[in-house]
Simulated assay, not measured.
Amino acid sequence: MNMWNNFAESHPSAAKWIREGGLFFIVSNLITVLKYILLQFLPNAFSGLPVVDFGWPGIQVTLFGETFKWNIIGYDAAHGGLPYFCAYMIAMFLGECINFPLQRNVVFRSKGNVAKQIGWYFLAFCVITCIVNSINCVWVAVAGIFVPDFIYNIGTTVLNGGVSMIIFFLVNKIILPEGEAK
Rank of each mutant, 00 (worst) to 15 (best):
F150I: 13
S13I: 04
L176D: 00
R19P: 01
L94I: 12
E96T: 09
F125N: 12
T157A: 15
E178A: 04
P12F: 00
I175A: 02
P101Q: 02
G48R: 02
I73H: 03
Q103K: 03
N113S: 09
E66P: 01
K173G: 03
F150Y: 15
R19F: 01
M89Q: 05
D76K: 00
L123P: 14
G112C: 02
G48I: 03
L94M: 10
I128F: 13
F25N: 14
A124Q: 11
L23K: 10
T156N: 15
A8C: 04
C86M: 13
F7I: 02
S110P: 01
V33W: 15
S164C: 06
A77D: 15
N71F: 03
F41S: 04
W70L: 01
M165K: 06
S28G: 06
A78C: 05
P148K: 10
V138C: 03
A181P: 12
V171C: 08
N6T: 13
F68Y: 12
H11I: 00
I72Q: 08
Y36F: 15
A181I: 11
G179D: 08
G112P: 06
V142I: 14
V107Q: 09
K173N: 08
T67L: 04
V52S: 10
L82Q: 08
E20V: 07
F100K: 00
K116Q: 09
F7R: 05
F7K: 04
S134M: 04
L63S: 05
E9F: 02
L39D: 01
A15V: 05
W56C: 02
L82S: 12
N105F: 09
A77T: 15
F100Y: 13
I37T: 12
F168R: 02
D149T: 13
G74T: 05
I37K: 12
L170W: 14
N6L: 10
V114F: 09
L23Q: 10
L63R: 04
A45L: 12
F64T: 02
I72W: 14
N99A: 01
G21E: 08
A115K: 14
I72C: 08
M165W: 11
C137M: 08
S164L: 04
S164Q: 08
K69F: 08
E180R: 12
W56H: 04
F41N: 04
F146I: 03
H79N: 13
A14K: 11
Q103T: 09
C126K: 10
W17E: 09
G48M: 03
W17N: 07
F100A: 05
G80Y: 05
T156I: 08
I166V: 14
A141W: 00
G162A: 09
K69T: 10
S110K: 01
M92L: 09
V106A: 07
D76E: 15
G58W: 11
N113E: 10
L102C: 12
F122T: 15
A15N: 07
I151T: 12
Y121S: 15
L63Q: 07
P177S: 02
